[in-house]
Design a protein around this nucleic acid. Structure first.
Lengths: 191, 191, 191, 191
DNA sequence: CATGAATGAGGTTTCATTCAT
DNA sequence: TATGAATGAAACCTCATTCAT
């Protein structure tokens, strides 16, 4: 419960003050506890941020895996639709958290965590796509990585430029278009 | 010349020590000058990083604009090929710089600079695409933004996961595929 | 019994972690109880250490007094032998405790306790020596203090430099030699 | 110069407040500089204390070596007189420093430094004693170590119990007596 | 222009101690 | 009596910035 409060407080502080205003004392005060309490749950500031990022990435990974399980054997367009839908739902459930975490992901062990959790999503995607009945040849491994990179990267890019709510609807539609057309091209035997 | 040394030193420090090891004293020492000298050229630490990021984005913007000028009136595939080529050349000329800058772009006014320079690239792209003779209807504004977001985002994603040189070749090829197939889909009247 | 465990834990923590690792929480955990329990037996950290040191000094004092009672009227060499023997037995019974306590004696009211318990030993010694049948004149007060200082100081010095077991045997023999020859010199009328 | 001020301030703070009142901020303020300055000369608090102790021990070692050089070939009593004299001069030149350093020697790497510098003194003594014309056999190595331990230990003991100036004169005289009679006993063939 | 010693606000972290359960 | 989460004062240390030389 205290942990929950600390995590929430961290997000809030991150959003209002940015990374350089994020002090352990400030986080604790915002959470309504003392610094000492914070340090009873996290050995240091880094680990607090780390845990936050890891948790978020975990959720995204799970959403991706669930989507992939759901979509097996369905036509490519439906597949991509399902995957993009769930991915964005997870990322945008708390836009504030996503945005806040982008700010620190480089500062802390970001890339490392991202790499690890990314692997899971790419694996799930790689297993899914070949089950589509309407593709000529299975895409190579890099194409799947690329699709995920484009999804993640474009989403980040949009969020960081201050996503207006209208944009999000657009993002959803166009991300499907982007991923689907790319997958078609990548699984086309005439390529 | 001193400025050049300071900029280079900043990149080096950033790459070896990460963001938290980046101190003005360290940068100055690495550049072979004293802190005082650093402050003769930059009013504060922020401005040093800011200048670095702006410079880099400027180069990318220029490359994009040049590519767009070059490609006017040519078929869509050639257009996309040219644009992706130049974009990646600019981004990857100094992989180290790109990677280093990703680390700070959030810390400093990153998003602001990115937003501004991004506008230029998107404008150039938006003017270019409709000149392709082989498209049905001109893409809407958001599609162009989306394409640029996918390009930038995917590239960032790949670089941050520790780009192996082999991957870069793949990136080039697939980025063309991705952008082209998306533009085709986005300018298809049946959509 | 809990008290015993706490005292033992304190020694252990002191030996493994040094003075700066000695925290009340750590001591309690090591003793298998909670901090709260520690504070039920000792009003504060200081008093815990104080009690430990006092107890140890008490034992040494008692050993000295017992030795002095035993040796009354016997020749000087036997006297010194007895005293040194008992003193070292008390000090070395638990080499670890002695060593651990040296580390804190300065931190807490060390000198004060030492002074007080030292007085007792010096008094006992001062009463003892003149009963030796083989001395010319009784030693002056300072000589007795000096002998005790040399005994204690040399022992501490040896223990702090990481007493090898072989050294301890040597220490015993040489301490007798040292004290005896000094007492002879100090009680020689030709001085 | 700043370093000198910091060292002096450390001693002062140590004497007035004890070890637990010794904070880097306090030391810096007392020295008339800011904390930052302190940290430009010492990487951390420990190293400040370490340097102080090392310096002091160095002086004592040098005094001992000088005394040993001076006393070669002279009768044992003169030797011991010279050595004790110089040793005490070095230790008591600044009684305050000696006393202050005893308080921290255990806290910091005390024993390690003491061990190292002690070696030098023992070596010098070990080379000196056999040159005395009036001894029967050379003392064994442990006897020399013992003598030094007794000197150092007794001096510490006396200083820690709040050396009255009158005591110092007594200490000088009795230390000579103690060391001399012990050395005679240790080099006596009838032993 | 260049230097680099000095500054000091402020951040992270520790730990003796309390008190409601 | 025992527990252990919570407290918060205070310690150590960093580093952007200044300014006399």
């Amino acid at each position: 419960m205290t942990v929950k409060a600390l995590e929430e407080a961290t997000i809030q502080v991150l959003l209002t003050g940015g990374l350089e205003r994020l002090t352990t004392n400030r986080v604790a005060r915002r959470a309504g506890v003392s610094v000492g309490t914070l340090y009873q749950y996290y050995p240091n500031k880094q680990s607090l941020l780390f845990a936050l990022l890891e948790q978020h990435m975990e959720k995204v990974s799970e959403a991706m895996e669930a989507a992939c399980n759901n979509a097996r054997g369905r036509p490519l367009l439906e597949m991509v639709g399902e995957v993009v839908q769930r991915f964005l739902d997870a990322k945008l459930a708390r836009t504030d958290i996503s945005t806040a975490l982008y700010k620190i992901s480089a500062k802390i062990g970001g890339p490392a965590i991202v790499k690890r959790t990314t692997k899971r999503s790419q694996k799930a995607l790689g297993d899914l796509i070949p089950t589509a009945p309407d593709i000529a040849i299975p895409p190579d491994k890099f194409a799947v990585e690329m699709m995920f990179a484009a999804m993640s990267g474009a989403t980040r890019f949009v969020l960081e430029s201050g996503a207006a709510p209208a944009m999000v609807a657009n993002l959803r539609k166009h991300l499907v278009l982007l991923c689907h057309s790319y997958m078609v091209a990548a699984t086309d035997q005439h390529r």
